[in-house]
Simulated scan of single mutants.
Amino acid sequence: MGESKLKRERKNKHQNTFIFGQRNYKFMVIGLAIIALGFILMAGGGSDDPNVFNPEIFSWRRIRLAPSLILIGFAVEVYAILTSPKRN
């Protein structure tokens, strides 16, 4: 006839929960901020005149630092997704 009270409570409990916990979302936001910072640091370095070469495009910041920050940001995102949320 009907579901037992325990089954209904379990069903309602599972419907009202998020996949990730608050800690996961914090790490996701931190990872996105690191990735955005990497892309911001990578921008620029061009020249207004296409006939003039600007060696600033090959600076340490654009070649080493920015891609490293982007990879670190992706690693933080993977950690945020794979870590188990704390259940109360």
Results as ranks from 00 to 15, higher is better:
S4C: 08
G2Y: 11
R23H: 08
A43R: 06
N24C: 02
G38S: 05
G38M: 04
I81R: 09
Q22T: 15
G2V: 10
S47G: 14
W60L: 04
F18R: 10
V29L: 06
V29Y: 04
Q22G: 10
I19P: 02
P55R: 00
I34F: 04
Q15V: 04
I81Q: 06
I72A: 15
N12S: 14
I40R: 01
F20T: 11
Y79N: 05
M42G: 12
R61G: 03
G31F: 00
P50Y: 07
L69I: 11
E56V: 00
M28L: 13
D48I: 07
L37Y: 05
A80L: 05
F53V: 04
I35G: 00
A75W: 13
V78S: 12
A66S: 15
Y79H: 10
Y25D: 03
R61P: 00
I34C: 02
L32T: 04
F58M: 01
V76G: 08
R61N: 07
A33I: 12
S68I: 10
T83K: 14
V52F: 09
K5G: 07
M42T: 02
V76Y: 10
I19A: 11
A75V: 14
T83F: 03
E56W: 00
V78F: 15
L82G: 08
N24V: 01
D49T: 06
R61S: 06
I57M: 06
D48M: 12
V29W: 03
L41I: 03
G21N: 02
L41M: 08
G31E: 04
E56Y: 00
L37I: 12
D48H: 13
F74E: 13
S68Q: 04
